[in-house]
Simulated scan of single mutants.
Amino acid sequence: MYRFLLSRQWVILTLVALLLIPTMIRLGIWQMHRYEERTARNQLVSDALAAAPAPVETLTSPGHVVTRDERYRNVTATGRFDTEREVVVRRRVNADEEVGFHVLTPFVLTDGKVLLVNRGWIPADGPSQTVFPKVPAPPAGQITVTGRLMPDETTAASGIKNLKGLPDRQVMLINSEQEAERLGAEVLGGYIAQTAPAPKGDTPQLIGRPGDEDAALNYAYAIQWWLFSAAVPVGWVVLVRRELRDRREAGTPEKSEQTEPAAV
């Protein structure tokens, strides 16, 4: 009765179904892992932003690699801005997706070490991208700044190519090792995205708070893939029954081979 399952068409269909089931289960597991990772990341960010500001040198030092747990921690530092050796970071966008620069200013601490401070975004409104843009000056003299601690940017982590031969005082990545070599100074690992004091004018625009990643979608996708995996065998059974019904209605050999009930 089920000999048609041995036909080429049905063997291929069955094999495809058998392959789809574990594949969809694995995709669901992968989406669940993504959900757990994003949920954990969101919690780390929330905890870091809620923590009281700490002196920057308690969390980083020259050559230090900012860890995942240290990222976004609020830190404070006292010193002065060195605008003479300020650079801008190319091809950065603001909240409105406008392309411009980030302003990266060395901040010389009271002990002589240097902290890199991303003072925010400015528009690329110069006559050309080869000209150093007009950058609003930071407060002069000794001040205390507050910001979110960030790890060094790398091509591997950001996908941004660290291009060479750029115009004077322009860089592609914010990297403490690269800046330490340029400045010839001890530079603390990572950098901070300044949050205070706020600029007096419209720019630089301070970097906004990091938003939560939407983990709920990954959870929904996981359930969706698992429902698909459960639907495959159900669909296979439905197709088999439909095939049997069609063969019986068409008078296929399966039907002719059945014996007629004996007359009484």
Score class of each variant (00 low, 15 high):
Ala198Leu: 08
Thr76Pro: 02
Ala17Lys: 03
Asp214Trp: 10
Tyr2Cys: 08
Leu183Pro: 02
Val66Asp: 02
Arg245Gly: 13
Val45Tyr: 05
Ser46Tyr: 05
Gln224Gly: 01
Leu115Val: 12
Phe228Cys: 01
Thr67Trp: 02
Asp214Asn: 14
Ala40His: 04
Thr252Glu: 14
Ser229Asn: 07
Ile12Met: 09
Glu98Asp: 06
Arg247Leu: 14
Val240Ser: 05
Pro151Asn: 03
Ala140Ile: 03
Leu15Gly: 06
Arg169Ile: 13
Thr105Cys: 12
Tyr35Asn: 13
Leu5Asn: 07
Asn94Val: 05
Tyr219Phe: 14
Pro151Phe: 05
Val238His: 07
Thr154Pro: 08
Arg209Ala: 11
Val171His: 04
Glu260Leu: 12
Lys200Pro: 01
Leu20Phe: 10
Glu84Pro: 03
Glu177Arg: 15
Ala52Leu: 08
Asp152Thr: 04
Ala156Phe: 11
Asn74Gln: 15
Arg248Leu: 14
Thr83Leu: 09
Asn218Tyr: 10
Thr39Gln: 10
Met32Asp: 10
Leu13Arg: 05
Thr259Phe: 13
Arg169Pro: 00
Ile29Leu: 07
Ser256Asn: 15
Trp10Arg: 07
Val16Asn: 02
Ala250His: 10
Val16Ser: 09
Val135Ser: 06
Ala263Gly: 04
Leu227Arg: 00
Val238Ser: 10
Gly120Pro: 07
Arg182Asn: 12
Val238Asp: 02
Ile207Phe: 06
